[in-house]
Design a protein around this nucleic acid. Structure first.
Length: 300
DNA sequence: ATCCAGGGGTCAC
DNA sequence: GTGACCCATGGA
């Protein structure tokens, strides 16, 4: 069989991760049917469509389309492990949540939720730029239009599986065409500019991860047009898994903080800093769980 | 109609 | 370094 198994770590819930991926939005980069998650990615061995299911105390990955040799399967296992942050022990984070009466409910309500990532730094930055200052529903529409126009697509079993376009392709994207997709002129410029920065080697995952500390990683990203402090922190959190990246100014984060009675209004920066200082090393997870709490309210 | 969305650049001071 | 202004469009 073209499958590989990943042992599930402690404090892990595939259902919670699935729920996050399937919340209220139309994400064009994966498909969920029942308890099965299907996605296409580019691997060093070719494009692949694979599905993930829970099988006992394992996640089972099955290659549906494309090369499925041992190296591909190992690549996919590493991809999924990274995607769902399965190598991290999050019990220390839960211990901190349990010490805060306002947040302790999360360890049950969202138990086992992992910080679902965006594997590729370029994709993460593009997604940030797309999502800047517009509502998420519209952001997902823009992403779908961009991906359907410029990304590769694999058909399997009457479904189209899309792969986020490469920097090489987006560097040559048509700014007029992107305007027609309802990108603003600036967003189109930013994405094309970032794509060129990746092609030239001005940005790469290796360059950023090689930097000595979080601050210099932020600086390296913010120096590019279209990347502000929010985008830098979001991308570092979701892609390179920097544990202490707080997307300062994030509207959803501020709403969640006020919803939990942690701040009274959006200007209380000192109070926010003081609050996060109690979660040192887990700021990214705390942010992710606070975002999760926003969706919980929408559903109730 | 008005305000706000998982912001960022630019420019004045 | 801070604050006002603009960008663009959908949804409430």
């Amino acid at each position: 069989m073209d499958t590989v198994l990943i042992p599930v770590p402690a404090v892990f819930s595939f259902q919670e991760c699935l729920w996050f991926l399937n919340r209220n939005y139309d994400d064009c980069l994966h498909r969920i049917e029942g308890n099965t998650l299907t996605k296409a990615i580019k691997t060093p061995y070719g494009n692949t469509v694979f599905q993930i299911r829970e099988r006992g105390s394992f996640l089972e990955i099955t290659v549906l389309e494309g090369e499925s040799g041992r190296e591909t399967r190992e690549y996919l296992a590493a991809f999924v492990t990274e995607w769902f942050d399965m190598d991290r022990s999050i019990q220390p984070f839960y211990d901190l949540l349990n010490q805060d009466a306002r947040l302790a409910y999360m360890t049950d309500a969202f138990g086992g939720l992992r910080l679902v990532g965006i594997g590729d730094l370029f994709e993460a930055i593009c997604w940030c730029i797309i999502g800047q200052q517009i509502n998420l529903s519209f952001a997902y529409k823009l992403k779908r239009r961009l991906v359907e126009e410029y990304g590769e697509c694999i058909e399997f079993d009457n479904h189209a599986y899309h792969i986020f376009p490469s920097a090489e392709v987006l560097a040559n994207a048509d700014i007029v065409g992107m305007r027609a997709m309802q990108f603003s002129e600036k967003k189109a410029e930013y994405i094309i500019g970032i794509a060129n920065a990746f092609i030239s080697g001005a940005i790469s995952e290796n360059i950023i991860t090689a930097l000595p500390d979080f601050g210099s990683q932020q600086k390296a990203l913010v120096s590019h047009k279209g990347i502000g402090i929010w985008t830098a922190n979001y991308a570092l959190m979701k892609s390179l898994r920097v544990p202490n990246a707080i997307p300062h100014g994030d509207v959803g984060l501020l709403n969640a903080l006020s919803g939990h009675g942690i701040i009274a209004d959006r200007t209380e920066k000192e109070r926010i800093d003081a609050f996060f200082s109690g979660f040192a090393g887990w700021e990214s997870y705390l942010t992710f769980y606070l975002w999760r709490s926003l969706s919980a309210k929408e559903l109730s």
